[in-house]
Design a protein around this nucleic acid. Structure first.
Length: 274
DNA sequence: CACACAACCTGTCAGC
DNA sequence: TGCTGACAGGTTGTGT
């Protein structure tokens, strides 16, 4: 389920438990993820203290001492789960399990294996092809309505496709694209370059507010982040259009429609979104 | 170049 | 109870 808010929630959830701790054990159950984990994966990270966890787009960057970094992406079905103790019984589809001093076990679980982990020198990871060419963060202060409008104006593709394009803007996935377009009254099929400056301002504000709300609702589940399921990022959101085909629109009561765009389902209200 | 689409992989659910 | 097909929150490579 990971779009930006889920990834950010995972990051915040992990911070208080493993930052400042030494990685004492790495067990690989499967090296073939989206990219194969390198031969030296374990050795690079082993016995190092974790200094911090950053996020860029939907990637997590684990900063270790000695200039070493672990890059992680959760793909469609990935999750990171933290459990107390070292007597961890790996589940099906656990691919990498990290043991931390202080008795914590972190498991990377990903049934579909669209996720990815990469260990290397921080300089190399930060300069990695995967991170190059990513667009601005939605909360980047320099991303003002004017710049956002210009970004939309540069493409004739449907606006929904454009705001999901990580080279143009990062962090927005299928759910929050649908939700933000609904909130700003813009039809998902509208060519991006036909979005007016005023609408672009509304859309940017909607993207931010939708993401912020989701992060907040994730944050509220963080209290028992470890004690409950041990999972971060799997909390219930209240979606206004996503997954609600045929159900009444929250604003006008007419049926929510579902179409297919670039291979993904889009949900919208034909009356409220033009 | 800009865009659409298939592919990657497993699980789940609706329909027969 | 199977079986089949469609679909799932992402990204990338290929083709038009």
């Amino acid at each position: 389920m990971p779009e930006l808010p889920e990834v950010e929630t995972v990051r915040r959830g992990l911070l208080p438990y493993i930052v400042g701790r030494r990685l004492s054990d790495v067990v690989l159950y499967r090296r073939e993820l989206r990219h194969p984990l390198g031969d030296a994966f374990e050795e690079r990270l082993m016995d190092r203290v974790l200094l911090g966890i950053d996020r860029r787009a939907k990637y997590l960057l684990f900063r270790f001492e000695g200039g070493v970094m672990l890059l992680a992406h959760l793909g469609m079905s990935g999750s990171l789960t933290l459990k107390a103790g070292h007597d961890y019984a790996p589940r099906k589809h656990d691919h990498v399990v990290f043991g931390w001093e202080g008795e914590w076990t972190l498991a990377f679980h990903d049934p579909r294996r669209f996720g990815l982990m990469l260990a290397g020198d921080e300089v190399d990871i930060r300069g990695h092809k995967l991170l190059a060419g990513l667009g601005p963060e939605p909360f980047d202060a320099t991303l003002d309505p004017g710049r956002f409008h210009a970004l939309l104006a540069s493409s004739r593709a449907p606006v929904k496709t454009v705001i999901m394009d990580q080279r143009k803007l990062v962090g927005v996935g299928n759910i929050y694209a649908c939700e933000a377009l609904f909130a700003s009254g813009i039809h998902p099929e509208r060519p991006a370059n036909k979005v007016t400056g005023k609408e672009a301002g509304r859309l940017l504000a909607a993207i931010r507010s939708v993401l912020e709300d989701a992060i907040e609702s994730g944050g509220s589940t963080l209290r028992d982040y470890v004690r409950s399921s041990g999972e971060a990022g799997y909390f219930q959101h209240h979606f206004r259009v996503y997954g609600r085909a045929g159900k009444p629109c929250a604003q006008c009561g007419r049926g929510v429609l579902q179409i297919r765009q670039a291979g993904r389902s889009s949900f919208y209200c034909a009356h409220c979104q033009k």
